[in-house]
Design a protein around this nucleic acid. Structure first.
Lengths: 219, 219
DNA sequence: TTGAGAATACGCCGAATGGGGTATTTATTC
DNA sequence: GAATAAATACCCCATTCGGCGTATTCTCAA
């Protein structure tokens, strides 16, 4: 468990080479850290960790093949000691929550500077959780249970309801969904109405727009 | 018109500070170019250009306030000599086309290396157009008129139809749209049906999903 | 064991959508 | 000046959606 305090190794994971290149140069400016590898998708991350030990993975969430969330989940199963610092463009509650549930140790929004990056790296390597300050309000919105303003939104959807939302988004009618799920069309209709109520949408168009914008669907 | 060949000035525009920081270090590695400013949105770009002369703007497309497409359009009206090299995560035909129509001199996908960046800068500063090689197939898809496979899609929507699609996506009914546009609800319904037909969607849910996924709406 | 939430199913009924037409007016283009 | 496309508006009519309820069953946690 002895760890030299001199240099801590870092794996960069992002599908954009330009971002990797820039980040590598940035990390060079941060004392005590060294980039030891690059990955362009989740599978490359997992493969790298099978042959190498790193202190931390700086992980982009939006990656092809295997995204950052699923990668983190698998990584934490096999190598729980490796820290994961998520970096993303997305600052919505749903994404943050999923990433933290997957086991991430920190969440940085890309819209931050090198100072914050340095700070975040220090914190997660000490075993603490780091979340970009500007995401605090977003977190409060969902975590505390109650909310901030009077918006009726934010995922109170059940599993079944999510399934059905996905099918609605595919353009299926209640009838077709019922057939697929071996349910009565009336049941599907009930779900549909409950969904609209929960999310505060008044018709299908608004519903689809809402779920796509808030990434409630994995598609 | 005499231009020293020694150093060409570059303005970076991206809403992600981390990306700006990294990019600045990358550009430092490219001989003959110098970063003279940073902008976090379109308005900052236009403001900067009122007081400074630059050779080229490295412009992200996804920016808050004023996005890269609209910024390019305005920039080219007032300063047509300033080159615009678009940089984006988006590699879809619609976005590329819009950006080039707006007057961009090049289009780089972020998934490229420093070598390609250097090459692109050289080309656009010589007055040529540079497009990331891997986007060639995407371009062929739309430019040539006909396409690759047998997909019935790709924006045959008229201006009025786009307006109405946007309102449908807001959750407005035919009645409400008609009131807003001073039209008969019957007319709106006709447009609606034409839209569904053109895009090959069989109901509103599929329509909204389609336009959002294909970025036919600026929202 | 009592209660809450989830999933199922139904009734009634008006509003909205969508599929098939046709037609007129105005622009634009050839 | 004829052809074409866009925008407008209407017809008929079936299907689907959405708002208002209620009710049963099951599971899980307090």
């Amino acid at each position: 468990m002895l760890q030299t305090t001199m240099t801590r190794s870092l794996l960069l994971a992002d599908d954009h080479q330009l971002f990797l290149d820039g980040m590598r140069l940035l990390i060079d400016r941060i004392e005590g850290w060294e980039v030891v590898g690059e990955a362009h998708n989740g599978y490359e991350v997992l493969a790298f960790l099978q042959n190498n030990r790193v202190e931390c993975v700086l992980m982009d969430i939006e990656m092809p093949e295997l995204n950052g969330i699923e990668t983190t989940r698998r990584l934490k199963k096999t190598s729980p000691v490796v820290k994961v610092l998520a970096v993303s463009m997305m600052g919505d509650y749903s994404t943050i929550r999923k990433m933290l549930q997957a086991g991430a140790d920190g969440y940085l929004i890309k819209n931050t500077g090198i100072a914050e990056l340095r700070h975040a790296l220090e914190m997660v390597s000490r075993g603490e959780i780091y979340i970009s300050a500007e995401l605090a309000p977003v977190l409060l919105e969902g975590v505390a249970g109650r909310k901030a303003s009077a918006n009726p939104l934010m995922e109170p959807l059940t599993q079944r309801e999510r399934e059905i939302v996905a099918m609605i988004a595919e353009g299926m009618t209640n009838e077709q969904i019922a057939a697929r799920l071996y349910l009565s069309p009336l049941t599907v209709n009930t779900h549909r109405k409950n969904i609209l109520g929960k999310l505060g949408c008044k018709n299908t168009a608004a519903l689809i727009r809402y779920v796509l914008k808030n990434k409630l669907l994995d598609q």
